[in-house]
Simulated assay, not measured.
Amino acid sequence: MLALMSVGEAVESEPKRRSPRRAIFGFVVLAVVALLFGVPLVTLLWSGNDWPLGVELAGTALVVLAALGFPVLMFRGHGGHSDTASRIADTLLGVVWVLFTWSVIGQAFGLALRLAGVDDPVRSRVVTAVVLLIASVLLLWGYAEAMRVSRVRRVDVTIPRLGPGLDGLRVVLITDTHYGPIDRTRWSQGVTKVINSLDPDIVAHTGDIADGEVQQRLSMAAPLADVQARFARVYVTGNHEYFSGALGWVEHMTSLGWDALHNRHLVVTRGGDSLIVAGVDDRTAAGSGLPGHHTDHEAALAGADPSLPILLLAHQPHQITGAVSHGVDLQLSGHTHGGQMWPFHYLVRLDQPVLQGLSRHSERTQLYTSRGTGFWGPPFRIFAPSEITLLTLHTPR
């Protein structure tokens, strides 16, 4: 699943890899596809169900065709920039992931039934019915969760170095909007409406704004121009910008009135106290080949008053190491999507130090990781709801 969730990224971001590495990647993808489609095939059709021959043959043919077509659709969609192919491939990936997960659980349930003395074909048919029922409910619910305007998650953060004039500062965080092959213009308008209702002092977008070039996603990004903030609207790049035209998105966000914190900072002052608001490029930026694009905390904080507290935007939680070493007080990140589709979060944790929420990483440095405002790929969110985050900053009581 991890290989497939990133296959679109690999197609676009690694076109010049040497053939042995590409061969290994291809083998891994094919092995994962065989596993994802094979386990549901065995569970639902072959495990003692004793279906009529016609049903078994038709079902097997359907699964095999889907498995063979899936990589083609994924590469045509995310590699060839076909929105239609992307929609089909992404939806298929979500469906097969849920079927795979619950087929594995179903096999354990089947073992329990066997120990209880339930014989086939009744045992296997009960497992099939349970798997299909749970998968159907989760997919319908997960789709509704993905497509709805995100709920507001309210978080209070105490920052010891924050001056009293900034106590109660309201920071709204959105991230991973992933404007993509499904038109979510109305959704984007709804997100902007919610943000403005929170009366923010600062609005931050921590990257992965879209999958596609600016011209492809103009209507979905347009409502960002209407976002209101008392002091600043700030944005940093995520990993997806670097195969969706990063320079174009940085320029477009600037044209919409946002400050693109491309390894730089600004200062917000209220009540006689100030806060450094800084941003760094995503950790993948250095491999993009774009001049000057790389994570550079020193450049981002150059000239900043070292006595002032620092709010840092960095797309990935993994970048917290640099924040700690540079004395950042609070880093805001996204990228993980909270796992997006249970139990994918176990794989996310292999790559990232934090899945979601507020965490502490040194005596000074805290990290808030959002579950993301949109979704990538499969249009489902299962046990990982999206969020628009309202962080209220406080001085110590």
Score class of each variant (00 low, 15 high):
Y346C: 00
R233Y: 00
V328S: 02
R17C: 04
T269R: 14
D183W: 11
R270I: 05
G94Q: 02
A323C: 04
D351H: 13
T43W: 09
A34I: 08
V29G: 01
T84N: 12
L391D: 10
L45V: 08
R381I: 04
L169G: 06
V72G: 08
W342L: 06
G292Q: 03
G106W: 01
L266G: 11
A285E: 12
F231N: 08
L115H: 02
A221Q: 05
S255H: 13
G59M: 02
V267R: 13
V42N: 13
V122W: 13
H345G: 10
S362I: 00
V277Y: 06
P20F: 03
A300N: 07
R230W: 03
G334H: 07
Q356H: 14
S19C: 12
L332Y: 01
V203I: 07
T84W: 14
A144F: 01
R87W: 04
A222R: 15
G180R: 14
R170M: 08
D282L: 01
M253I: 09
D259T: 15
T336W: 07
R349Y: 11
A221N: 05
P181C: 08
D329R: 03
A221H: 05
E387G: 02
E387T: 00
E145A: 07
A146F: 01
L92H: 05
D199M: 01
F109L: 15
I310P: 01
Q331G: 03
I182A: 14
L391C: 10
R154E: 15
A300K: 02
V268K: 07
D199W: 00
F37A: 10
V64K: 11
W102T: 04
V33Q: 07
A204M: 12
G26W: 09
L132W: 02
L390I: 02
P181M: 03
A135H: 02
L350E: 13
H81Q: 10
V33D: 13
P181D: 13
Q319L: 09
G339V: 01
L290M: 12
Q216I: 01
V194S: 11
M5C: 12
V7H: 14
I105H: 07
L133N: 09
H252K: 12
P353D: 11
V171D: 07
N263A: 05
D199P: 00
G207Y: 05
I105Y: 12
P40M: 04
R230Y: 04
D208S: 06
P40E: 09
R217H: 10
L311M: 09
S219I: 00
L301H: 03
G110Q: 09
G94I: 00
P291A: 04
L99A: 10
V268G: 09
L139M: 12
F344T: 09
D273V: 06
T60W: 02
L266I: 12
V29A: 12
L65N: 07
V130S: 08
M147K: 14
W376R: 00
A204I: 08
S82L: 06
D201L: 01
T237N: 11
L350G: 14
L57P: 14
T336H: 11
I388A: 02
Q215I: 01
H337G: 06
L393G: 05
I174R: 01
R123W: 03
A304P: 03
A146M: 05
G94N: 01
D199S: 13
Q107Y: 13
T84M: 12
G245F: 03
L65K: 04
W46Y: 12
H265A: 11
I182R: 15
W97R: 01
P121T: 14
G212H: 04
T128Q: 15
A146P: 06
R114C: 08
